[in-house]
């Protein structure tokens, strides 16, 4: 029993954990409470009842497994159970889940019920050992280690030691170098999209070219470059789509407070990148009265009537604007590519 007041050691406690026995083990201040018999220990009928309960659970479990197999065979995946207001259920999912889940649950419940009611429940006491290895073994290990070290000559043969260390230090290099071809270098790809002067603007999905008169004030069009589908299928990926998609909005010319370039609109029609400058979610939550565009991922808010500047949220940069005009046939086209990289910031962006 310790009563010393040295830092980090037990303080003035009268009997924190009791006194030590002959083997130096602490004895508890209050001994273990006497074991209390359960009803099942004293009443054979109660024990019999518990046994029957456990057996019922195991038996039911087996029955449910049979039911599972029956359900698997009988019910196809296109059968549904429509419970109106409660929901619609894939019948096979419900039946397989309830039978299998029930069966498994009952095995567990039975086993635990068995353990609690019928298995001996007297608490036992065991002694702990210190985590550390005993001193004798440690000393003997150290001796072995020193013997081995001496036998290897690792300490004396400096040249071997140093070259080995050097070789080991370099050996992971190929493992890292080999990762180089995981992907191409960025190059200028993050600064370019397939938009170019004269590139038709078409509606998403329906791919219709757009006349300025098609968009009323307050209108919104989700659009992309006319050649996108072709490029996408040729390249076999959606990389260009992920950069080139835009939204078109129209406001009255007086409502436009500023733009990223002189005359980049066409009669109040503005084209902005649809990719958020924060971490790249597509944004089209446009409120045509306030001209705010909200990102659904992190709530960056851009004012499209004011050069697409950030008015709220974690994004720092304005939404890049695409300069547009109309071609000879009267359809909206891009006047050039974006003048700044679209999407999230990156180190080389500057």
């Amino acid at each position: 029993m310790s009563t010393d007041l040295t830092p980090g050691s037990p303080g003035n406690l009268p009997a924190t954990t009791g006194t030590a026995d002959g083997a130096g083990r602490e004895q508890p201040l209050y001994p273990l409470a006497p074991h209390q018999l359960r009803l099942t220990d004293t009443d054979p009928r109660a024990a019999k009842r518990a046994e029957r309960q456990v057996a019922t659970m195991f038996g039911l479990s087996a029955l449910l497994i049979v039911a599972f197999v029956v359900a698997y065979v009988m019910v196809q995946t296109d059968q549904y159970l429509d419970l109106g207001n409660i929901g619609k259920f894939q019948l096979s999912n419900v039946l397989l889940g309830l039978t299998f889940g029930g069966a498994v649950f009952l095995i567990g419940a039975g086993a635990i019920h068995w353990a609690k009611k019928l298995m001996a429940d007297e608490e036992m006491v065991d002694y702990r050992h210190p985590a550390a290895t005993d001193d004798e073994t440690r000393a003997s290990l150290l001796e072995d280690f020193n013997d081995g070290l001496a036998e290897s000559g690792f300490a004396q043969r400096r040249m071997v030691r140093r070259t080995l260390i050097g070789a080991l230090a370099l050996f992971p290099v190929p493992l890292v170098v080999l990762l180089r071809d995981l992907g191409p270098l960025p190059g200028t790809s993050l600064r370019e999209t397939i938009w170019k002067a004269g590139e038709r603007i078409v509606t998403d999905v329906t791919l219709r070219p757009i006349r300025p008169s098609d968009i009323p004030v307050g209108g919104l069009v989700n659009a992309s470059p006319g050649s996108l589908e072709e490029v996408q299928h040729a390249e076999g990926n959606m990389n260009e789509r992920a950069k080139a998609v835009i939204i078109l909005v129209r406001m009255t010319p007086e409502q436009i407070k500023s733009q990223q370039g002189e005359g980049w609109d066409y009669n109040g029609i503005l084209a902005f990148s649809k990719i958020c400058t924060h971490v790249g979610c597509p944004i089209a939550l446009y409120q045509h009265v306030t001209h705010h565009l909200l990102c659904p991922c992190h709530q960056s808010t851009f004012d499209l009537s004011d050069s697409g500047n950030v008015v709220f949220g974690p994004a720092n940069r304005r939404l890049p604007q695409l300069p547009i005009t109309v071609d000879d046939a009267g359809y909206l086209v891009a006047s050039s590519d974006f003048h700044e990289p679209v999407g999230p910031s990156f180190w080389e962006r500057g």
Partner: peptide, 21 residues
Amino acid sequence: TAKAGGFFFIVFGLITLVSAV
């Protein structure tokens, strides 16, 4: 063996029952 083993089945069973509905 019974309690912890049984508890595995309980956890498995409960997750399955939730997944069923």
